[in-house]
Design a protein around this nucleic acid. Structure first.
Lengths: 235, 235
DNA sequence: CCCGGATTGAGACAACCGTCACGCCGCCTC
DNA sequence: GAGGCGGCGTGACGGTTGTCTCAATCCGGG
């Protein structure tokens, strides 16, 4: 796919004139990164914006002890690292490709010129930041309130809705992550994920099919475990 | 203080023309809320923007079990709830005054008109969102990686730098929070805060002076406990 | 000055979870 | 097919933390 038609698919640039977009496309670099390639690390000054063409990028923080907490992962069509580009600060987290990925790189000066010339971008950018902020609020709440099983349940339910295949005995999903990667996503340890999976299996909320495949008989019920309590509303 | 000169002090509106600001000021409401007054709750549709004139507002999420996690607190001159105003979504969290507070309320339609007419606002708003986002990344990391004592140490060190009084035997601070409020800020339970305080005291990092007063002999050392580990690197 | 509610400290206990250790399995390479 | 290796499950263990309970202290109002 050529860069121009890729850019066209990205909400951030959708409203650009053909002219402006073509000019931008001419200044971008496309490159394929192998799995596990480090794009940038926490605290580094920002060189530019990445856009995922194919593959997946995870954005995370690392603890001094070596544990990871994934803040979010982005797939095809999604931008990575708009924040530091906009406020001029350093990258707030690190980013690594999870699988082999094709990325478009927009150098910082290019993006800034664009941004100044094109007032519409601001609107799109604000929405993008808003989405991130809401997501992070969710991550925070999850870490603060829920145990590993509940976090896993939430994750699986959401995953099933986005990537699941509906059959008549439930939704089947194929996880594209190892337990280790899952644990980083959920802010826990590999072993705890194994145990939580067993727990969900025992409760009948999931049925393991193969190493990375499972069936979810009732996604809503799984999600309910993720939002425990569901306090009766009194208003 | 009249609304116009208050608005002038707020970065969000600083660049407005006198005219535009005066027009906005005429449409705002100022009101004094008692301590513990609930401004809005998670999920509610957004009615408008609040600006703290005096006092303090805490923004938080509540778990079904009744525990709270504070996302941030805002003081004089700071806006509250810009996000839902901008992306049209519901409030992502709840807000409550911690002490008696005087707040300016900007109704949503007013703000939107302003926003459309004044492209400069976008820039300011993006910076504001960016700040929030960076802060939330910090909160997330803190919850994922550090134990209660480390979180408390970080909090106290930061507090000391902003509100401490320097003496020759260290920095003295007067906490304006109960243990209960502290625990919500740190995402833990009241009792755990007590234990952590004792722990810090035993290590000589803090010296209790009175119920809410303490001395910190060495703020840097206290901060170090907040960024723990610094594990020897073996690579 | 006394009382009652709020705040706090402290102990006991169980649950949760991170870590270590070990063994198994599937897959790849030589 | 032997060996190596990454991914995975499981048990054991201990530390951290949330919860419950009770008592002491503080503080404002009558």
């Amino acid at each position: 796919m050529d860069i121009d038609s890729l850019l066209r698919q990205i909400p951030l640039f959708a409203r650009f004139s053909d002219d402006a977009r073509a000019r931008l496309a001419a200044r971008c670099l496309t490159r394929t990164h192998g799995a596990g390639s480090l794009l940038f690390t926490t605290g580094e000054p920002c060189r530019g914006l990445y856009i995922v063409e194919s593959g997946r990028v995870r954005i995370f923080r690392t603890s001094p002890a070596g544990r990871e907490q994934v803040l979010h992962t982005e797939g095809p069509g999604r931008p990575v690292a708009e924040l530091p580009l906009l406020d001029g600060g350093p990258y707030p987290a690190s980013a690594m490709t999870e699988v082999e990925s094709r990325l478009v790189f927009v150098p910082r000066p290019e993006f800034e010129a664009l941004y100044r010339a094109n007032p519409d971008v601001a609107e799109a950018v604000i929405r993008e930041l808003g989405k991130r902020l809401r997501h992070l609020v969710h991550v925070t709440e999850t870490l603060a309130f829920r145990d590993v099983a509940a976090r896993l349940a939430s994750f699986l339910a959401e995953y099933a809705e986005h990537h699941g295949r509906v059959t008549d005995s439930g939704v089947e999903i194929v996880l594209d992550r190892t337990r280790e990667e899952l644990s980083q996503e959920l802010g826990t340890a590999r072993e705890s994920v194994s145990r939580a999976l067993k727990q969900l299996t025992e409760k009948g909320l999931i049925e393991p099919l193969a190493r990375r495949r499972m069936r979810i008989p009732d996604v809503a019920r799984l999600r309910t475990l993720g939002r425990p309590g569901e306090r009766p509303r009194y208003e």
